[in-house]
Simulated assay, not measured.
Amino acid sequence: MRSLRRPRLLVPALLCALAVLAARPPGASDAAADGDSHGAADAGISAQVARLYEDAAVATQRYEAGRQEAEVQRAQAERFEALLDRERQGIAVLHEDLGRIARAQYRSGGGLPITAQMILADDPDNLMRGQRAVWRADLAVNNAIDKSRRAEARLAADEKKAAAAWRELDRHATELADLKRDIEAKLEQARWQLQGQADASVAAGSCRGAVRLDQADADVTSGWIAPVKSYELSAAFGSGGARWANRHTGQDFAVPIGTPVRAVGAGRVVKVSCGGPFGIEVVLRHAGGYYTQYAHLAAAAVDQGESVSAGHWIGQSGTSGNSTGPHLHFEVRVTPETGSAVDPVPWLAARGVPLE
């Protein structure tokens, strides 16, 4: 049974916002209109992926919030249903009591007019006291029945209104799910368009310049942060694999193409490269002489020589170079070059960033 409490339908406002997002064409660009500028178009697709990435995350969060609210309302509906069942059981009990009283009255002469009963009774006073008790009991039972029937009528009306409200909520939830899927489809298309640009840059061995992405301030409390916000850990440091000459030199984070990649700590960009087995890569130098590498990117968002803070977006993940699928290859080194890597998991954990 559906909830008897009309749910707060906050979905329509969200649907309007998401409808605007879903209406954006896949090839739309936030860059200034310049038909002769290939760089502006490249930056536009990067910005579009970043924007759609956030839009999809927001849509998913709100969709899940709506689903959880529906679960709460479903639990409320079950409680109301239990109350209604108890009311109906109470009415049945009262009906049985009234039947017993009626049968008792009939057996004790209740079928005779009260005047005749008084004339024939041995003790009229006792008869009247007994009759008043029966009247009071009968009145109480009838009042209780009327009250319960009114309550049942109200609950039945509430059920009808609640059912209509649930149908409306289900309709909005379906629309929201459709819009969410539409945003995700546009995002997937834009991601692979971004990856195509990355592959072209790697094939040419020439970077197309930093793409500047708008971003919110990162929530960094310890001065260090994970290189991506949401992830699954895949190939670990030191693991074997057919695609590596010796052992894996970093920690891989399985994330979709276009995921914002963040500087794990404050530092300076010492390398931006777009060729070779790492595809598009960025290398940062940090205080203390350590270096971090971010490889297989779809785009770089910084230029060599820039200073960055912890959490600053330095690129977007991809699958460029020697890569079998979308992920971020992250290394910690004691020099800017390969061959000096240390295990990044304990290195980050020592700086207050445990990876899970």
Score class of each variant (00 low, 15 high):
5 R>L: 11
8 R>F: 04
11 V>F: 06
15 L>T: 01
17 A>H: 06
17 A>Q: 09
21 L>I: 14
24 R>P: 00
31 A>H: 07
39 G>C: 09
42 D>G: 15
43 A>R: 04
54 E>W: 03
54 E>R: 14
56 A>K: 01
68 Q>C: 09
69 E>T: 12
73 Q>F: 12
74 R>T: 15
76 Q>F: 07
85 D>K: 15
89 Q>C: 10
90 G>M: 14
91 I>E: 13
92 A>Y: 09
108 S>H: 09
113 P>A: 04
114 I>A: 12
118 M>C: 05
118 M>P: 04
125 D>C: 05
130 G>S: 10
131 Q>P: 00
139 L>F: 13
142 N>I: 10
146 D>F: 14
149 R>E: 13
154 R>A: 09
161 K>F: 12
162 A>M: 09
170 D>W: 06
173 A>D: 11
174 T>P: 04
174 T>F: 07
180 K>Y: 06
180 K>Q: 15
182 D>K: 09
183 I>C: 04
184 E>Y: 05
185 A>Y: 04
189 Q>E: 10
194 L>P: 02
195 Q>L: 06
198 A>L: 00
203 A>Q: 13
207 C>K: 04
215 Q>G: 12
226 A>V: 02
235 A>R: 08
239 S>A: 12
251 Q>H: 02
255 V>E: 05
256 P>K: 05
261 V>R: 03
268 R>G: 06
283 V>A: 01
288 G>S: 01
291 Y>V: 05
303 D>N: 13
308 V>P: 02
309 S>R: 08
315 G>E: 05
318 G>E: 00
329 H>C: 06
336 P>K: 05
337 E>K: 07
338 T>R: 06
339 G>P: 01
343 D>W: 00
344 P>S: 01
349 A>H: 00
349 A>Q: 03
354 P>A: 02
